[in-house]
């Protein structure tokens, strides 16, 4: 039998790895981040107190605001596109069809593969001179598109690629959601002579609101961490049109060694993310 004191201590021993990890890799970093926002530091020399210098700089930093705007541009294309296509494909898959497993597996393939692979691959597909996409357009009699070299289009191209990469996951999530809608609802609507489209809009869409909400939140959080795609494809160009916020934070920290300023950007951006998620929670999540 275990002695009484041992019995009392045991739970704390078991959660101790978590508590140590929490202190070292979450609590301390958050506090240290806040301290860093008031300092200038290149990590080698001593820290220098600059009061609100970093914050002032942030508000006048055009490039940072461009990077925020770019990130929102990415989200505003990526999220609607993702929801519409994923929901459509999930609805198709939810019909009585053969090869369901094959289609699902095919859609899901890019989800498991590293973003690095997907980006290297699409960089070639998007290539202006001989990329598969432009060759296809030319063969149809259209002109070439500057997928990654036109500043107006580059971020759209990256958003399309990201949609292609993540779509499979959201198809599966919607599919799970669709299967939770009680069959009786559709049967009742059938009696009233409702069309397929009416049933979809009036029953399906409201009933899968929890899934919809989750998809929006997951792709928002994912979208806000956009980094490796522009890092590999464009380096943030052309004309900073694909510079994402995380890429900018990364550059400030690891190209210029502005640790204090970079931490300030990180703190501000994190608050912005939380704010956006709260707003989404308020407007999208509904009780059924």
């Amino acid at each position: 039998m275990m002695s009484n004191t041992r019995k009392k201590i045991m739970p704390y021993v078991m959660v101790s790895p978590y508590l140590v990890h929490l202190l070292v890799f979450t609590t301390f970093p958050v506090i240290f981040s806040l301290i860093l926002t008031f300092h200038k530091w290149n990590i080698i020399g001593p820290m220098e107190w600059v009061e609100f210098g970093n914050w002032k700089r942030l508000f006048y930093d055009r490039l940072f605001w461009i990077s925020i705007l770019n990130t929102f541009k990415f989200l505003s294309i990526h999220i609607p596109l993702q929801i519409i296509i994923a929901l459509a494909l999930a609805e198709f898959l939810n019909q009585n069809i053969r090869l369901k497993g094959f289609f699902r597996a095919a859609f899901f393939m890019p989800v498991v593969v590293s973003g690095v692979v997907v980006t290297i691959l699409w960089q070639q597909l998007f290539s202006f001179e001989n990329g598969v996409l432009n060759r296809f357009l030319v063969s149809l009699g259209f002109g070439k598109v500057g997928w990654l070299i036109d500043p107006d289009i580059a971020m759209v191209s990256i958003a399309v690629m990201a949609t292609w990469k993540n779509l499979g996951l959201y198809v599966i999530l919607f599919l799970v959601g669709l299967q939770t809608v009680p069959k009786q609802y559709y049967e009742a609507a059938d009696l009233d002579g409702a069309s397929h489209w009416q049933k979809f809009i009036k029953i399906t869409v409201p009933m899968i609101n929890p899934t919809m909400f989750m998809v929006v939140i997951l792709s928002t959080i994912g979208g806000f961490s956009l980094f490796i795609e522009p890092y590999i494809m464009t380096g943030g160009g052309p004309l900073n049109s694909t510079l994402s916020a995380v890429l900018y934070i990364y550059k400030q920290a690891f190209q210029y060694y502005h640790m204090g300023y970079s931490a300030t950007l990180g703190v501000f951006f994190a608050f912005l993310i939380v704010l956006v998620v709260i707003v989404q929670k308020r407007y999208i999540e509904k009780d059924i």
């Binding site: 070292v24 890799f25 301390f28 958050v30 961490s225 970079s262 931490a263 951006f269 994190a270």
Partner: peptide, 23 residues
């Protein structure tokens, strides 16, 4: 502890990235 876990899950990684590198 359970509540702390739930709370920290909502914390964006962007806030801890730089300090974690410094650690």
């Amino acid at each position: 502890i359970f509540m702390i876990i739930i709370f920290t899950m909502t914390l964006p990684f962007q806030i801890t990235l730089i300090p974690n590198y410094i650690i």
